[in-house]
Nucleic acid binder design. Structure first.
Length: 426
DNA sequence: TCTGGGGTCCTAGGACCC
DNA sequence: TCTGGGGTCCTAGGACCC
């Protein structure tokens, strides 16, 4: 049995690249994609990077974008999710199914069966195939642990001479590269850990690898200790080919304009609960309680307020009407007049598989009827688009609705939004 | 004038990730 | 005017019990 090896593949400026695939006029031009509500820049292509910082609020850079002729898009998660699925199909071919989908644009592949001297060629072939079949440019990092694969991917992105593929399989390669990586760029080392490490003179990935594991544990808990082992080449994190059952589910949104009255708040909370119930049903899960929260803006002077309330259900449920009712009851209990609310949301945790929880002796509602109704609603919304049917409480789309003013078409998932092509000179 | 000890379970909050 | 959303994991500390 060969030693273990992992590859991490990710899409370069993934959201921007998705937009560029379907709009050839963007080629060679700066492009950014905004977060929900057109709030912040969350993706920048390589031409936009010199002007736009990650997370820059849009209202602060709007003029700059105009001056520099930067193309700006609202997030189009439907499109990005579909492109992501296409890429993972290719990865599964390359890694005989041994693929962990880590995020919308990153996947770990097992490459244990690829001999060490062929791993760079494997990476180049994978990149070329993904580019040809989806139009998305990628980088590939290879290593004996997931943390090293991640680090290799980071190096592939930052160093043009690597041509998009970096292999840290050999100890010699690690000795060459790890001293060049700031410790804060290591997967799992955030701001707090970086500050602690800096105080004891640990500044690079190589320093972290060479520090005593026990000291790492005392500074950064067992998570930091594992990171040290992983940098040494001792694999502590396995590939998770089957997505573990999710434990929680949240739907939260900032309002596009501040909410000050109860009817608007109730409508927003009902909309979030509706969406939450859909997510539960799609995952075959139920919840026994739902929490509601609302708060004012942390950037705004004036009276501040942050409140939350958990409401228990008589029995576990994924029924939209149950969840809307409970969420609104919670919202009524915590809503206070006189505040300019900036955000509200619902959170559900302790999720259980549908039908697995013990039922009360005397059922309070007709389960079969509820399930039939929800199935009908999901079918209709599946065919005609989300929101074709919603509970009346989720309302009629008022001012608080999240903004997506610059969203591109859903090219790959909606027949009425397919890209069109014109042939010239025939 | 004065403190038990040890176990489990739950929750809140911190840290990190994309 | 305008500053994202959705996860996971770990630990400390309180409540409770015997």
């Amino acid at each position: 049995m060969a030693d273990r090896a992992f590859a991490l593949v990710d899409g370069n400026s993934f959201y921007c690249s998705c937009e560029e695939v379907f709009d050839p006029t963007l080629a060679g031009r700066p492009v950014i994609v905004l977060s929900n509500n057109d709030g912040c820049a969350v993706a920048r292509n390589r031409f936009a990077r010199r002007w736009i910082g990650m997370g820059d609020p849009y209202f602060k850079i709007r003029d700059l974008c105009e001056r520099k002729n930067i193309s700006v898009f609202s997030s189009n998660y439907t499109l990005y999710g579909d492109m992501s699925a296409r890429m993972n199909t290719i990865y599964r071919d390359f890694a005989t199914g041994e693929v962990e989908v880590y995020s919308i644009d990153e996947s770990f592949l097992s490459v244990s069966l690829v001999s060490p001297d062929e791993r760079v060629a494997f990476g180049r072939d994978l990149r070329a195939t993904v580019l040809r079949w989806t139009g998305i440019p990628t980088c590939v990092g290879v290593g004996p642990t997931k943390t090293l694969a991640k680090l290799a991917n980071h190096l592939a992105k930052k160093n043009d001479e690597l041509a998009g593929v970096c292999d840290l399989t050999s100890a010699a390669a690690r000795d060459r590269w790890l001293p060049r990586v700031p410790v804060g760029d290591v997967w799992g080392i955030g701001g707090a850990a970086q500050a602690k490490l800096s105080r004891i003179g640990v500044e690079t990935a190589a320093d972290l690898r060479d520090m005593p594991a026990r000291l790492a544990r005392s500074l950064m808990t067992v998570v930091g200790e594992k990171t040290v082992f992983e940098l040494q080449g001792l694999s502590c994190l396995d590939l998770e080919v089957l997505a573990p059952q999710r434990k929680g589910c949240a739907v939260t949104r900032s309002f596009s304009s501040k909410v000050t009255d109860l009817p608007d708040m109730l409508e927003a909370v009902a909309t979030h609960a509706t969406r939450g119930a859909e997510k539960l049903r799609r995952n075959g899960l139920e919840t026994g309680h739902i929490s509601v929260f609302m708060h004012t803006s942390r950037f705004e002077a004036g009276p501040a307020c942050s409140a939350s309330r958990t409401v228990h259900l008589p029995e576990t449920s994924a029924d939209t009407l149950d969840l809307v009712r409970a969420a609104q009851a919670g919202a009524r209990a915590i809503f206070r007049e006189g505040f300019r609310y900036a955000k509200a949301g619902i959170v559900m945790d302790d999720l259980v598989p549908a039908g697995s929880a013990p039922r009360p002796l005397f059922e309070q509602r007709d389960r079969a009827r509820s399930e039939a109704l929800m199935e009908a609603i999901d079918t209709i919304n599946g065919r005609f688009g989300r929101g074709a049917i919603t509970p009346a409480a989720a309302g009629i789309r008022r001012d608080w609705q999240t903004k997506f003013e610059m969203r591109s078409p859903r090219y790959t998932t909606r027949v009425d939004e397919l890209p069109s092509a014109r042939a010239r000179g025939l």
